[in-house]
Design a protein around this nucleic acid. Structure first.
Lengths: 223, 223
DNA sequence: TGGGCTGTTGGAACATCGTTCCATTTCTGT
DNA sequence: ACAGAAATGGAACGATGTTCCAACAGCCCA
């Protein structure tokens, strides 16, 4: 009779996609995108990687589900009884704040602009754009232009999300600005000018300015 | 005397970062981002992976160098004697065409918005924005808003670049649109409306429309 | 001319990772 | 009670980025 023939204790609480996604989000928030491995996830859930694959297709699907879970929460909270322009600003800022709080979402959104989480944002924004009442073709151009603002900050924070965990946010920007300052003054006069403002600038404010720019463009072209 | 003690023939032409980047671009263009492995690269260059690491820091640096090489070529070709708005359109379309021709650049640009290749584009656009003559702070907001248009299409093509190589471009869009058509009509009314237009739309035209929207916004706010 | 020294090369070896496979356990309906 | 289906845990596979190191080439200086 083999001494060791029995398995380890089976978990009492059942595994489920929801529980897996929840654990994945905890890992992502704590240690960034690189830390989300099936081994780490299996350890945290006290199971094996095979069991996880029963509930989730692959790593990409897991990341998409994690991003969708958070974006869904943010988008459902947005209530709007104001005029469309203000509603659009509220939605966009909601997306911004989510990306800011969970930088790995930036990488996920900009990595696949047609995943469900992006659709959620697009639907929210698109509905408000519809209320502005412009021709059909212009409708989609305007919505995707607004989406570009969101995907733009997503990409910016995606880069920061891949950084080692200890790096400070402001230190990151300062380091970038210092790199820019070393560029050839003739070839990169504009970028060097920008570098001076980079460390002290407000991400959120700049994001909002971009959205307002697009809104102003919509207003001026069709109204 | 061991029969096999001599090494393989050493290459006559010297290895160099330029030669490595060139070979990397060939692989990327031929088989997409996933195909660029150090093993494949070493085989194509008839050398070992260690030799490549002597010239290139790591895979990320290699991809950045490849993207920069192509973007540098595109940006240097842009000649402009027209008014700033037209010049901006020309630059943006140049970036668009580069991304369209080499979809892996999309993944690279949107994956790290502060790499050199992106700076090149930003410098080109920023200089033209300067010529418009607006206040300092607005300058950077306007430039980054225009960059968002570029990073937006970059992200869109990045997704397509990760697809299996045989997939057609239009088939990809059609498949996406079909997926959208299956969504809940109540929750996703806007996206479903968009799905109808997706397969037949012109990427380049929509990109230009986004740029024009931002340009119109700039015009309407500061002039 | 010869002998080290530095820059360079090729390829084996290492550490991980995503994913697959499968023996085994648990659940469910009859 | 039992058969089939659902679910589990962990070993094993194949591939990748990266590191390491023994060997080599060209060069300067004695």
């Amino acid at each position: 009779m083999p001494f060791n023939s029995q398995r380890a204790e089976r978990r009492t609480d059942a595994l489920s996609k929801a529980r897996i996604v929840e654990a994945a989000i905890q890992i992502l928030d704590a240690d960034g995108e690189g830390a989300l491995t099936f081994r780490a996830l299996a350890t945290r859930l006290a199971t094996g990687s095979g069991a996880i694959y029963w509930h989730v297709a692959d790593r990409q699907a897991l990341l998409a589900a994690a991003a969708d879970h958070i974006i869904a929460g943010v988008m459902s909270e947005v209530t709007m009884r104001s005029k469309p322009q203000d509603a659009i600003r509220t939605i966009a800022l909601g997306a911004f704040d989510a990306i800011y709080a969970h930088p790995w979402i930036g990488a996920q959104l900009s990595g696949d602009p047609w995943q469900h989480a992006v659709l959620r944002i697009m639907e929210s924004i698109g509905r408000q754009v519809q209320l502005l009442g412009m021709p059909e073709a212009a409708l989609f151009n305007a919505t995707t232009a607004l989406m570009n603002c969101v995907l733009g900050v997503a990409a910016q924070h995606a880069a920061a999300a891949r950084l080692p965990r200890n790096t400070e946010r402001s230190a990151h920007l300062t380091a970038i600005a210092e790199g820019w300052a070393l560029l050839d003054p003739l070839e990169y006069s504009f970028v060097r000018r920008l570098a001076a403002q980079l460390p002290g600038h407000d991400d959120r404010e700049q994001f909002l300015a971009g959205v307002n720019l697009v809104l102003a463009g919509i207003q001026s072209i069709w109204f």
